[in-house]
């Protein structure tokens, strides 16, 4: 099964072996709890980096990996070597936590179904992550789109100019504090 294989490979990224790995495992329960309780106000502690195996029927993907921005290329190399294809790149603006999350989706062509989501969080004031265009050429447009919408700078991107927005656009419409 590819899921176990990939999961082990990802766990190598997080060096503090057993306790660190089991901590995010407990985290997996947390979304379920917030579901039953309708209280959104309670501040939950920020999620630690690590791998979570998700319930596919609820969330629609198998593995949820959160990494630091400088671990991103290693994480993407793992899915590349396992012959995943790139599905999309997008962002989510968590304005209350003063962070922007960049979300990478990967999936597989064969019947050993495995969807992997790789996330990384950066500060809203300096949103810079390395580009993955050297690994996946098809990330080019996705990264340009994310740059358009969120103002994230993809370090090393060969052609980071507006894709969907007008060529002189200096605004980022999907930021939560964007005012038209």
């Amino acid at each position: 099964m590819i899921i176990e294989k990939i999961k082990l490979a990802f766990q190598d990224l997080f060096p503090v072996a057993e306790p660190e790995v089991s901590a995010p495992e407990e985290k997996a329960e947390e979304p379920e709890e917030t579901k039953t309780k309708k209280k959104v106000k309670t501040k939950k502690p920020p999620r630690l980096n690590g791998v979570i195996e998700c319930n596919y029927t609820v969330h629609g993907y198998h593995l949820d990996v959160q990494v630091d921005a400088d671990q991103l290329l290693d994480a993407v190399s793992i899915v590349d070597q396992a012959e995943f294809f790139i599905e999309s790149i997008t962002g989510v603006d968590w304005i209350k936590e003063d962070q922007i999350e960049i979300v990478y989706d990967f999936s597989r062509y064969d019947f050993d179904t495995c969807r992997v989501v790789i996330r990384t969080r950066v500060n809203r004031s300096s949103p810079v992550v390395p580009t993955i265009t050297d690994i996946y050429a098809g990330a080019n447009w996705h990264e340009r789109e994310t740059h358009d919408f969120f103002g994230i700078k993809f370090d090393g991107h060969p052609h980071l100019i507006p894709l969907l927005l007008p060529e002189d656009a200096d605004f980022h419409p999907l930021l939560k504090d964007f005012k038209a």
Binding site: T34, K35, V40, H59, G60, D64, E87, S88, V117
Partner: peptide
């Protein structure tokens, strides 16, 4: 409920995916 959900379907043009991030 708050959470992150993904669904892919096969449309006439290929794999169409929707990611929904809900805050409840």
């Amino acid at each position: 409920p708050a959470g992150d959900y993904y669904q892919a379907v096969e449309t006439a043009r290929g794999n169409f995916g929707v990611r929904l991030v809900s805050d409840g």
